[in-house]
Amino acid sequence: MLGFTEARRRRKFEAMTKPHLDALYRTARRMTGHAQTAEDVVQETCLKAYRGFHTFQAGTNYGAWLFRILTNTCIDWRRRRGIGETVDLHALPDALLGADVGSATRDRYEPDPEASLLVAEFRRDVMGAIGRLSPELRMVVLLAVFEEYSYAEIAEAVGCPVGTVRSRLNRGRRQLQADLAAYRRGATDPIPLADARAARDGGGQ
């Protein structure tokens, strides 16, 4: 039987952590490019969080704290596996419309089969573009654009200053836009992509 303190700690942990599970999983999934690995990473993250639960300071952002552990776990995973910079979210069959994910996405009512095919294609290309971001850029982009965390929270989650988050985010989002340029409406972009890239890589800091 669990002791009183332990049982309370367990309940509190469950109440606080479970609401973040989907976000942790989909972020891990997009960071590692692999469903099974993402599960391992999330399980490891939660175990570490539970062990260090007493070090979490009430009043600070719990989600950001969890994502910090997740970020470190992903770094460890990459280091151990000797995985390269990018993850091919494209090539993996389970990345396609998520055989493993997204009951909500998958089951969403799509009246027009052609439209839903386009959605699927777009989704696949977005995943591909995310996978081509370097891990540093990818994590801040996932947290900012897809989980909608604030710059300060992201800074805490990835353990770097807000200024760094801001510049990574800028680069990451611009790269995504450039990668998905084909989907932009109106092909009348006055500044060709090459120039935008030059501005990004060169002077435009």
Binding site: R10, E39, G102, T105, R108, L176
Partner: peptide, 29 residues
């Protein structure tokens, strides 16, 4: 750019953790 980010968010919204993952987390713990 704004519209594109909104579409990206919509396209990937609602990806969920697989069933049973939370149970495995608590079992680990």
């Amino acid at each position: 750019s704004e519209g594109m980010e909104r579409r990206m968010r919509q396209a990937l919204a609602g990806d969920r953790a697989p069933d049973g993952l939370w149970d495995r987390v608590m079992a680990d713990i």
